[in-house]
């Protein structure tokens, strides 16, 4: 069994967001982090690895520095990493990206017992589209918003966390699961993992490696091939200050009422 975990390097939203002239994010100028939901996906995979000893592969599409992120995931416990990287892939929207990643996964091979884990969504675009689109292109079942995962042979029992409740679903492998942050608490890297991660294999898949993949339509990848055009990206101006009122609900309500009364609102 092999678990592919799709991960994305995203801008650290606690810093300032820089934008290119064509409307896309200027990723080079920003501090990056591993997308938080993807960390939950990785932890879910590592838990299954702890129990079964399966192989865990971290997969990402991004510029060459994204290799650093793959090393970090290997230091957490992943066995190897795959970096999909090429100028031709740059500027891809979710439709183009999922095609390329699906093509890469197909190229790597998805066996009967294999699973693809993704984070629910990335904090930069917040679309939650790439995971489901990868599943569609690979023609494997998908279960989104996993808040609990139980593995029993080649069946996964998933508790989906939805806005108004939850839903329990069983799904057979191979399948794709998107994970929410309630699923688990991601582990830290270990010193042993860090020492070893620089000797573990990272496969780079560039455009020539994937150009003949049947799942990839060369006319619909990259900035030019992407159906989505970004009109404008910007850092929203701050709307004013927020004050957090601490204490129990009763205390906070009292304090709020007092403040509103002072301003003659109530």
């Amino acid at each position: 069994m092999r678990i592919y975990v799709c991960v994305k390097q995203v801008p650290d939203t606690s810093g300032k967001v820089a934008v290119n002239e064509n409307g896309t994010l200027n990723r080079a100028s920003m501090q990056t982090i591993i997308n938080p939901d993807d960390m939950n996906a990785m932890e879910a995979a590592l838990k299954i690895k702890d129990a079964t000893g399966c192989q865990v592969t971290a997969v990402t599409m991004g510029p060459p520095p994204a290799e650093g992120m793959l090393r970090e995931l290997i230091a957490m416990g992943a066995d190897d990493g795959v970096l999909i990287s090429g100028r031709e892939f740059g500027g891809s929207d979710t439709f183009a990206t999922s095609q390329i990643i699906a093509g890469a996964l197909h190229h790597l091979g998805i066996g009967d017992e294999d699973v693809v884990f993704c984070g629910r969504q990335a904090i930069d675009g917040d679309t939650a589209q790439v995971g489901p689109q990868i599943a569609e292109k690979l023609e494997i079942p998908q279960v989104t918003y996993a808040g609990e995962i139980e593995k029993d042979g080649n069946v996964l029992k998933i508790k989906r966390l939805l806005e108004d409740g939850y839903m329990t679903v069983e799904v057979k492998t191979p399948c794709l699961i998107t994970c929410v942050k309630e699923l688990n608490e991601p582990r830290y890297m270990t010193v042993k993992g860090i020492i070893e991660c620089y000797d573990k294999p990272i496969t780079v898949l560039d455009y020539p490696a994937l150009e003949n993949e049947p799942l990839i339509d060369k006319t619909t990848i990259g900035l030019k091939g992407s159906p989505t055009n970004i009109f404008k990206s910007f850092t929203p101006p701050q709307k004013g200050s927020v004050e957090m009122i601490p204490g129990t609900s009763q205390e906070a309500a009292d304090a709020l009422a007092e403040k509103l009364a002072k301003k003659h609102i109530i």
């Binding site: 582990r187 830290y188 270990t190 010193v191 042993k192 020492i195």
Partner: peptide, 27 residues
């Protein structure tokens, strides 16, 4: 302990992380 920090300088064969003095100093 769960994250292995109690054994960063203890060799791997004794259940540690196999780190060196620089790792220990940084921690």
């Amino acid at each position: 302990a769960k994250n292995g920090f109690c054994g960063i300088k203890i060799p791997v064969e004794y259940g540690g992380q196999g780190g060196d003095s620089l790792a220990y100093v940084l921690m």
